[in-house]
Design a protein around this nucleic acid. Structure first.
Lengths: 141, 141
DNA sequence: AGGCTTGTGGGGAAAAGTGGGGAGAAAGGG
DNA sequence: CCCTTTCTCCCCACTTTTCCCCACAAGCCT
């Protein structure tokens, strides 16, 4: 399970370190994909396979599912940690997430998201707002 | 169940001791989050998981579910007790709660809140005022 | 009064973040 | 076809931060 928010710098070669806790759960095998929003999603290999199986079981049923498959698998990249615990971010993904020289790593339960710092701030703000509304609906404190 | 109000000092490394009674209920596994108000919330791991599940089950669409996950997991930090019963407070959380060198630990039923001393005084004042009104409505005391 | 528990402080070791250099592979031009 | 140039990937080293352990002082209970 991943959680927490960490800010790192990309060096001029496009490498990012991940928090040590994350590395331990991602035994040197990571799959990077375009996130639904403007971010990069990183899955541990096992979790990625699980998602892939889930998709594959539905792939034959509809044309839209096939398109979905292409969108997901076609834009996915494998990445490995170097000896310092960093991964290189492919340029297409960096462009998609508009990531410059600073980056935010966010743990989101089963996966990890990589954000442009400013985009993340606004996304977090709206996310927290929504969470509050739901909490009030629960009567929870 | 947590209750009571305790004042401690942060050392220059950002560590806080928790009351011994609290430690026993939080068997060395704590999750720290940004509170809705300007404070830090600490949950026992089990309690935090329960809340996370409860919230996640409320989400309607997959998009709102993603936002919710970001709000829940992105703002959470894991913390462990050292041999002296202290936990280290991550810098982002300290900034959020405006915590300087003195800190107030407040037990709030299922969770524990960590406050800036001055902010807590005003929060307590308004809390008590509101509590009085509610109690009068109950014909209480 | 004594011993135990608790709050507070400091020091040392280990790990993590950041930056730079070198070797290998791929691509393009002669 | 070969050489050159460029790009990418991997390894190494340094600095900073974090974590953990030890030790002292004060308060409480017995």
């Amino acid at each position: 399970m991943f959680f927490g928010e960490y800010v790192y710098k990309l060096d001029d070669k496009g490498r990012v370190p991940l928090p040590p806790k994350f590395r331990r759960d991602m035994r040197e095998a990571v799959v990077l994909t375009k996130g639904p929003e403007k971010c990069i999603r990183a899955y541990p290999l096992a979790e990625w396979k699980r998602l892939a199986d889930e998709l594959a079981s539905k792939a034959l049923t509809s044309a839209s599912q096939r398109k979905l498959n292409r969108a997901i698998f076609g834009t996915a990249f494998a990445a490995a940690f170097d000896k310092q615990g960093r991964i290189g971010l492919p340029l297409p993904l960096r462009l998609h997430a508009e990531i410059g020289d600073s980056i935010v790593v966010v743990g989101v339960n089963q996966s990890v998201e990589l954000w442009n710092e400013d985009l993340w701030k606004s996304e977090r703000a709206s996310s927290e707002e929504q969470a509050e509304q739901i909490q009030e609906g629960m009567g929870g404190s």
